[in-house]
């Protein structure tokens, strides 16, 4: 196998999981985005930056439709992208993952990646709806967020590799090592510099829906790639004999 088949099943898995993610977001996150953008518009009127005119609302509806329709398309693109990373890690780590079949192994890896490159970074730099976020700090915030994701992901891989050198309690060593390290990084990294000016209940509910949406992606990709991998047996190699 085909390199092409491996790439295809990884991309299909990511695209489908992304489609599910985008659809879930469309159903449960969009109402909160609309509320937040409504607040943003009111702030624009009150500050005098915009006027509450028919022209404003025509233009607003135009780009809002574009933004909403992009939710699902962006879900597919993001899903394919993150799915590609997931596919690489799964292929390289499959033999080390717990589970007696590919579906279980794929779900375990999805859980590990959900925790290390999504949930823990999210706890440090949680998602925010529109109205929260200063355009002047977006580059800094992007760098902080990406850095934290990269540190967490590489730390998970690093402590796993390190734990192999131990004769016993390998999983425990990897888990404790990662937990101590990422806790230190968590408190050492700078906070999000932006003040939250939107109502806190809106922000909290938006964040919960955001987590549910992203979680739907990781569950989906674990199940889909696991099933496809299992059915197509893309990993099978002829046994090597040593005498």
């Amino acid at each position: 196998m085909k390199t092409s088949l491996f790439i295809i099943i990884v991309l299909i898995s990511g695209a489908f999981a992304g489609l599910i993610h985008g659809t879930v977001n469309f159903a449960i996150v969009e109402p909160y985005l609309d509320q937040a953008i409504g607040i943003e518009n009111r702030n624009l009127f009150e500050s005098g930056e915009e006027e509450d005119t028919l022209e404003f609302w025509v233009e607003y509806e135009g780009y809002r439709v574009w933004q909403k329709s992009g939710q699902i398309l962006a879900g597919v693109i993001l899903g394919t992208s993150v799915g590609a990373l997931y596919g690489i890690v799964f292929a390289l780590s499959r033999n080390s993952l717990p589970g007696n079949n590919d579906v279980k192994k794929a779900i375990v890896l999805a859980g590990i990646m959900w925790l290390t490159i999504y949930l823990i970074p999210f706890l440090k730099y949680p998602a925010n709806p529109p109205t929260v976020g200063d355009g002047e700090t977006v580059v800094l915030r992007s760098m902080l967020y990406l850095s934290f994701i990269a540190i967490s992901g590489f730390a998970a891989v690093g402590f796993y590799q390190l734990s192999k050198k131990f004769k016993s309690n390998k999983k425990l060593v990897a888990l404790i090592g990662y937990a101590v390290f990422i806790s230190a990084v968590f408190f050492a990294m700078p906070e999000n510099p932006d003040e939250i000016t939107a109502p806190m209940n809106l922000v909290t509910e938006f964040r919960i829906m955001s987590v549910l949406g992203v979680t739907s992606f990781w569950v989906s990709i674990g199940v889909i790639l696991g099933i496809l991998w299992d059915r197509l047996k893309s990993h099978k190699q002829p046994p090597h004999s040593y005498s």
Binding site: L11, A74, I77, L78, T80, S81, I88, N95, H235, Q237
Partner: peptide, 28 residues
């Protein structure tokens, strides 16, 4: 006889998927 279970992943596949990952992440 030892069954050596290899990952069976080509470098080409890893490079191609890494490009997809980076490009998609940047776009979105």
């Amino acid at each position: 006889q030892i069954n050596v279970s290899k990952t069976g992943v080509s470098k080409l596949a890893i490079v191609a998927l890494a490009i997809v990952f980076a490009a998609g992440l940047f776009v979105v």
